[in-house]
Design a protein around this nucleic acid. Sequence first.
DNA 1: TGGAGGGCTGGTAGTTGCAT
DNA 2: ATGCAACTACCAGCCCTCCA
Length: 380
Amino acid sequence: MNMKPIMEDWRSFLTEQKCKLPNRGDIAEGIVAAAIAAKLSKRAGGKIQMVDVSDVIAQVGNIQQMNTVVSNVVPDFSNEHEDTVGFSISMPKRPFAALVDKNLLACLQGEYEGAVSYVNSAPMHKFATRLASNKKSNDILVKAAGTEDQKGTKVDISIVVDGNKLRNQLSLKVKGGNQFAQKTGKAFEVQKAFWEPLGIDVSGAEQQYVNIVENIPTGKPFVSRDEIDAGGYLKMASQATSLIYQQAYKTLESKLQNNRFEAEFVKLLADYIKTGAVGPESEFVELVKILPGDFKRARFGKKFYSEMEKANLYPIMSTSGAYPKIQIIYEDSDGNKSVLVQMRAKVERASGKSGGSKKYGVLMRNYLETGPALYKLAGV
DNA sequence: TGGAGGGCTGGTAGTTGCAT
DNA sequence: ATGCAACTACCAGCCCTCCA
């Protein structure tokens, strides 16, 4: 008898049991907020110290409950003033429970290490030093509240100094989180709204699109996902969105000059990316991606715009997959190509409940997602 | 290890149903 | 008829998982 499959099952069982987390991104908000508080308050010998994972764990360990400030009172470098460095967390119940569950620390090791390397990096170190040496008593509050207002703001963590939200705001992602904006729904208006900010008019495909999607039932009338597959509705959705994406791609090609995007369009593209990543007005929101033991940072100020202007950018379209996709490619001076962002259609067989039983429906979505090049052009 | 395809969750607004 | 509670669809948030 071969025991190997059993052992493998057992191992995967253990892994799943151990590291089944409700939402890694939500939990990471709390970890990063605690790490920032640790950094801002770790002062000794007139210097801001490097924080380590245990400092962050200690801060997290001091959390009493949601929305309650964990406070650290620390001396200013002058020793004549005291700063209060606090942080508070607001997130859904389950991620919060996971955050404060000491048994899950091992599962979040990568996030802790990534958060530590982020707060120890130069910008945060300098910020911490400035607050510690300004010879004032500052009231500093790090707020993780990204899940509170999902429609109103992209900011997940903000640092409030003496009541002022300054330039220190973060939009957070973790490994696997590339999506940063989307439009949902099968109405043609959804497609229109998705492409409009890029100055792309897809109305040429409207009639055909509508003709197809009107055959897709609204709501959640299906009793199983198989029933959706069997009805061929995913294919219909794919065909309909392909029409839109082809139209969009044609327009994108018309904005090329010598095989790269013209300046006017690049500006629109930069705006689109910035708005999707950090919101409309926030030049000082940074996009922070926490990787296991590491991080990437992107900002969308002047430097980003000038990098975009210089960059060799062009679109490619893919229809070979299940759903259409357009990628904006960045090609550097050595000819290396990488994806800046991609627009992708997807169809979800969304679940819901009605009459006490589980029901399913067809949910059409359009995603805007980051590629590696975004952190090159917007990286700091 | 990164790309391709996909799912779960929760807030909000709108609708429905029932008690008054 | 009306008010409130329960229910649901929509849609934006978040990655997750699988496979080459």
